[in-house]
Amino acid sequence: MGVIAEACGWLATGANWAGENGVAHRLGEHLYLTAVSLALACAIALPTAAYLGHIGRGGALAVNLSNAGRAVPTFAVLVLLTLTPLAGHGDLPTIIALVLFAVPPLLTNAYVGVREADQDVVEAARGMGMSGPQLLFRAELPLAFALIMTGVRSAGVQVVATATLAALPGGGGLGRIITGGFNTYDTPQVVAGALLVAALALLVEALLALVERVCDPMRRRPPAASGARGSGAPAEAGRV
């Protein structure tokens, strides 16, 4: 508990928050890396998974290939990208590595969610004359939304935690506070950096859970629609 108290004291010191190496600046860098990486990973993984889940072909191969990428250490990918002339230095190698790290949970959850959507509802929608895109956007994706958001939350927390590795090859983020503490043998600073990363991960998890709750299309449907769905009414409507 003594180290925790010293870390809290370090965080309570205003001088540690100011300047280019201060907490405020490093937190902004960390949030930037997290937001950009997660947004790019979602833009790549979610449309691909939704399409493959809708057509029912090629999804298993894509999921297995993306999951195989988890066996490659993120730090090794980051170092290799830093040494690659095309990626160069700065934030680009870190963002690429984080995107590659975030894609597997996004792709897996979105594919499984769309592919295993309630077939009674899907068949009812198809029987009502919905086209392929209408079926995907109005039936399959709403049914898969909860599982998709579970993947987004998992990827978001993982990206927040893994972005600390950006400091090792000289990047920014909260990892610089931790490595700075190691370099100066300042244990309270190391613990303070770790606490900041943990708190940010919990905050991201809570915000994404709130987004899921507010935006879930199944929650926003009227009670009558929910009752009809539970009683099998959509199937009857599809046969009319």
Rank of each mutant, 00 (worst) to 15 (best):
I4P: 11
A7L: 11
G9L: 08
A12S: 02
T13G: 15
G14M: 08
G14K: 14
A15N: 09
A15K: 12
W17N: 00
E20C: 12
G22E: 06
V23C: 10
R26F: 06
E29F: 07
E29L: 15
H30Y: 04
T34D: 03
V36F: 05
V36R: 05
A39D: 05
A45G: 03
A49H: 06
A50V: 15
A50I: 12
Y51I: 11
L52P: 02
L52H: 00
L52V: 10
H54P: 00
I55F: 09
G56W: 04
R57M: 11
A60F: 13
A62F: 14
S66C: 09
N67T: 05
R70I: 07
A71N: 09
P73S: 09
T74P: 04
T74D: 10
F75Q: 03
A76H: 08
L78G: 09
L81W: 09
L83G: 09
A87V: 13
G88R: 02
L92S: 11
P93H: 04
T94L: 10
I95R: 06
A97R: 02
L98Y: 05
L98N: 00
F101C: 05
F101Y: 11
V103E: 00
P104S: 12
P104G: 07
N109L: 05
Y111C: 10
Y111N: 02
G113F: 01
V114A: 05
V114H: 01
A117Y: 02
V122W: 03
V122C: 12
A124M: 03
R126G: 10
R126M: 13
R126A: 04
S131H: 08
G132M: 13
P133T: 09
Q134C: 05
F137N: 10
R138D: 14
E140M: 15
A144H: 04
L147Q: 08
I148C: 00
T150I: 09
V152C: 02
V152N: 00
R153Q: 06
V157I: 15
Q158W: 10
V159N: 01
T162V: 11
A163T: 00
A166S: 10
P169Y: 03
P169K: 10
G170H: 09
G170F: 01
L174D: 01
L174Y: 02
L174I: 12
G180D: 02
N183T: 15
T184W: 14
Y185E: 11
D186I: 03
D186Y: 08
D186L: 10
D186C: 08
P188K: 03
G193Q: 10
A194S: 14
L195C: 14
L195Q: 05
L196K: 13
V197H: 12
A201M: 07
L202N: 15
E205Q: 14
L208H: 01
A209E: 12
L210E: 02
V211Q: 01
E212S: 00
V214A: 00
D216E: 00
P217F: 05
M218F: 00
M218R: 11
R220F: 00
R221P: 06
R221D: 04
P222R: 04
A225Y: 13
A225I: 14
S226A: 08
R229M: 15
S231M: 14
P234L: 11
E236G: 08
E236D: 05
